[in-house]
Design a protein around this nucleic acid. Sequence first.
RNA 1: GCCGAAGUGGUGGAAUUGGCAGACACGCAGGUUUUAGGUACCUGUGCCUUCGGGCGUGGGGGUUCAAGUCCCCCCUUCGGCACCA
Length: 831
Amino acid sequence: MTQDGSPEATGAASYDVAAIQDKWRPVWDKLDLFRADDSSPKEKRYALTMFPYPSGDLHMGHAEVMALHDVAARYWWMKGYEVLNPMGWDSFGLPAENAAIKNDEHPATYTYGNIETQYQSFKRYGTSFDWSRRFNTSDPEYYRWTQWLFLKFHEKGLAYRKRSPVNWCPNDQTVLANEQVVDGACERCGAEVTKRELTQWYFRTTEYAQELLDSLDDLAPTWPSKVVNAQRNWIGRSEGAHVSFEISGRDEPITVFTTRPDTIFGTTFMVVAVDAALAAELVTDEQRGAFEAYREEIRKASDIDRLATDRPKTGVDLGVVATNPVTGAQMPVWATDYVLADYGTGAVMGVPGGDQRDWEFATAMGLPIIRTTQTPDGFDGEAYAGEGATINSPAVGVDCALDLNGLDVSAAKSRAIAFLEEIGAGTGTVNFRLRDWLLSRQRYWGAPIPIIHCPVDGEVPVPAEQLPVLLPELKGADLKPKGTSPLGGAAEWVAVTCPTCGGPAERDTDTMDTFVDSSWYFFRYVSPQDTTQAFDSELANAWGPIDLYVGGDEHAVLHLLYSRFFTKALRDMGLITWDEPFSAYLSQGKVLNEGRKMSKSLGNGVNLGDQLDAFGVDAVRLTLVFASPPEDNIDWADVSPSGSLRFLQRAWRLSGDVESAAGASAADGDRALRQVTHRTIADADELVASHRFNVMVAKVMELVNATRKAIDSGCGPADPAVREATETVAILLSLVAPYTAEEMWEQLGHQPGIARVSWPEVDEALLVEDSVTAVIQIKGKVKARLEVAPDISEADLEAAALAEPSIAAQLDGQTVRKVIVRAPKLVNIVV
RNA sequence: GCCGAAGUGGUGGAAUUGGCAGACACGCAGGUUUUAGGUACCUGUGCCUUCGGGCGUGGGGGUUCAAGUCCCCCCUUCGGCACCA
């Protein structure tokens, strides 16, 4: 880029980006600057950024997250912490498998090839990872422990198998967890998800629903509100009651869940989800034909259709009669598709006066409507679900042991629950939207579920000493999705002897969701080579929890929720002492191009390698860090890597201009420049600590500008303050632009390894300004400025302000009513 | 519908406890160099102006000596959830 010699105009040696990168990369490798020492007496910090999936090379998104994360990690080293900043690969998953089918090879070929490519790119990118701790989740030494953890969960009853309707992706030919279905479509490939009734493995995430929700309050100050909010919505806690209704011709009552037990007097019918087993069980013989026809019709409708909220309400009378436990009123029981089989109990009490859906259903079916909450003046039509006095509970003239009339909604709720509990017809309860995590997958490239199915002994865990259960060697066409796991095709692999009875048995042929792999990888980094355990608990407690986790918020309710669940479960198994995995979470925005997500189909992709070739690593990193606050999106069309490069060259030029000797004391140097330098150090410290990296860069730019001015038209290049300022620039810049900083550091006469020098000390005396600009306002408008001593008294400042000629002139003929003085910065004169 | 976040120049964005709005950049304009060129350097750049000044942080009100910042109402955009009872 400088072969035509542009910087020669300045008379300095050239700033050759490529040469600088080539020069320092091998030096850094040799110096091994970022190896975390378990036994260091220093305070420990654990910095983590989401490990990549090895599909192709690193892209702009990776570049951004790594640049941001690296600022924080390098800062901690400089601040004197012992830092664990590991990296590895989330290397099980579908893209490798699909590539293997296409190219008739083993998924490992694609996976490990891409890992090597990405590793080389990481090295080029100059990130401060401790590569000695590197591992891949598809390594048998890793998935051995994924399997071991599964068995621990199984032992504790947190992993179980059940038959249930599940989400099925017809394209990927596997089941999906609830979290992997977005708007009725597969989160990975976008295909419309259908339902299947299958027996699958689940993790009991609901066991921790309340705690997962509660600890969000502790995370709220250090996590983005966006993510906290998304998790709260996902867990979806609602308070209410279970209420039991006796059913004609049936011994067992039906229990419904409601958040409005106060509206029990308004119940005029009951509805059961048409696809729930309960509906088929209840229906009378006379109604069975109509019911089955209706159920068939609903089954044909896709989930996407069912999601539409403006569908007309439909249903079939099941022919049985339910009895209101409070009033004794008899009511019909209907089957409908507007009630969800897998939420609550799959049955609902129909209160058309208080619930809009019930209102629509009652209107469509000609069922009676009773209001139980006083509606506001002017309210008409529709159900009313707002606040108001309870009415018709019971109706005028009716005698009932429970009387809610006149109570407000919340008082009526507690009263109703207390009464239901008293008569044994209900209990106050909490219901969650969160479902258990379906972890089985019918695909090859994942960790096999370490269970053996024995006709005699049932589900038998693979004994720990037989782990890992290695994947059978399959490739190409053997991996083609066929609706059941490809592992089932490896007959020799499937057939085993039962560990308990020694008889013939079969291996479980499903693999685990790859989110299982990534739910515990941050534990493994503390002892990645340990062959005796998943991780060393003592080291995990020493390093963890993670002090800062940087990643994208596409994982707001996937990886982040699963990892939180794992952490709590492992804590309860006594393997760690912490409650939450990520003390602070920084969610980085996306890199867009021209307002849109980069994608092949839009043809607007920006290739990271091309950008690095054109502008160099430092300029690309600087651009990404400076463009916006970390959590905001960056539009590559709005930013200027060439501007970043220009700035880096300006900064670099300073180190060539410095004329004082290395080690020269700055004490007698130019005071004005020293003040800027020390102010910058103090500001940068605070800004990095609070993740305002873009502003930190701006402050360094200001210091560069001030230093340039000092050299050209101020104290001159020989003043030691110029050296101090330039060394400060190099150190602060090393957080973002390590190559340029290292080059400057060498030019300044220091040994390589700027990344490990200490954060500069701030001389507090230099933070005190020599003079302050006081603003003089009349009625809140700025009218004049005055240079004053920082310790000026209020009286002196007021006198000086009133004596200021331009102020005196404007006050002429006006009555001064009040003077507000905030020494030394402000005087406001009210006239 | 419910929950949450955010609206500041032509653009990205600063302004942490109410106290100089627009730092730092990008872009643009003009200029510099024994002048091709720029990814070099310098200067200017919120809007209006009768050159006194006036206006200005999505809109409208309010509190205050003083509001981008606090309070109320509204609008818009983005994110999460959504026939969740």
